[in-house]
Simulated scan of single mutants.
Amino acid sequence: MRSTADRIRQALSFEIIGLLVVTPLFAWLFDHPIGDMGMLVLLGATAATTWNYLFNLAFDHALRWRRGDVRKTLPLRIVHAVLFEVTLLVILLPIFAWWLGLSLLAALVMELSFAGFYVAYAFVFTWAYDTLFPPQRSGQMT
């Protein structure tokens, strides 16, 4: 299991790199001012950072309970990335609609675009992070 400090480093680095890539890209794609998109992405990142920590902690607990090991196979990495993004989509959809003054349907299209980007990004980032900072194999919970 990962330590609390490691989980915080993982969540923060995930969000910071994501912000630097997605803000200008989506401001351009959806033709919104970068300031508006930046604030929206920052609000989303704050929610996502908190959710990232809680989701990864719960996912690791579930893996350890079901399999006795927190290491992820390729299929588990796919499930992990998709589940994270689906749950985050439910959390963020009303925020997107409200902030940009969009209908829920228009916000859903935008949010699905973000989710598509972040599913791929979460998969690559988590794999790279696990390679650079492998989880401990100890049965200790931290």
Rank of each mutant, 00 (worst) to 15 (best):
I17Q: 01
G38H: 06
V86E: 04
D31F: 10
G101L: 07
W99E: 11
T46R: 04
I95M: 15
L102C: 05
I91R: 06
A47K: 00
V82F: 03
P33F: 06
W28R: 09
K72D: 05
R7T: 13
E15G: 12
V119T: 12
I8Q: 02
A5I: 06
P135Q: 03
N56V: 09
D36V: 03
A128D: 00
T4G: 01
R7Y: 06
A58I: 00
A45G: 15
V22T: 10
L108M: 12
D36C: 01
A115L: 12
M1A: 07
H80Q: 14
V124Q: 08
V70D: 03
A62G: 03
A122T: 13
A11E: 01
A120E: 02
L89V: 12
L93F: 01
D60W: 10
N56A: 11
V21M: 04
W51I: 02
Q140G: 00
V21G: 01
D60R: 08
T73A: 14
P33K: 09
M110Y: 10
G18F: 01
L20H: 00
A128M: 11
H32E: 13
G35M: 03
E15H: 09
L20S: 03
A11M: 07
R77E: 13
S13A: 07
T142M: 08
V119M: 13
F114D: 02
H80T: 04
L105D: 09
R71H: 15
R66S: 11
M1I: 10
R2T: 04
V82I: 15
Q10I: 00
G139F: 11
I95C: 03
L112A: 08
S103F: 07
I95E: 03
W98Y: 13
D36F: 07
T49Q: 06
V82L: 14
L20V: 08
H61W: 07
E111R: 05
F26M: 13
S3N: 05
W28Y: 11
V41T: 04
G18R: 06
M39R: 10
G18P: 05
N52W: 13
N52D: 14
L102G: 02
A107Y: 04
V124Y: 09
A128F: 10
L105Y: 10
M37V: 13
T50S: 01
D130I: 08
I91C: 02
A128T: 05
G139N: 13
L43R: 10
R64V: 08
L105R: 11
P94V: 06
F123L: 10
Y118G: 00
Q10M: 13
A106P: 00
F125Q: 05
A97I: 11
G68C: 12
E15R: 08
M141D: 13
Y121V: 08
L40D: 09
L40I: 12
R7H: 13
R9P: 00
Q10E: 13
A122G: 12
N52Q: 14
W127R: 11
D60P: 04
L12C: 07
N56D: 14
Y121M: 09
R64M: 14
L112E: 08
L88W: 08
R137T: 05
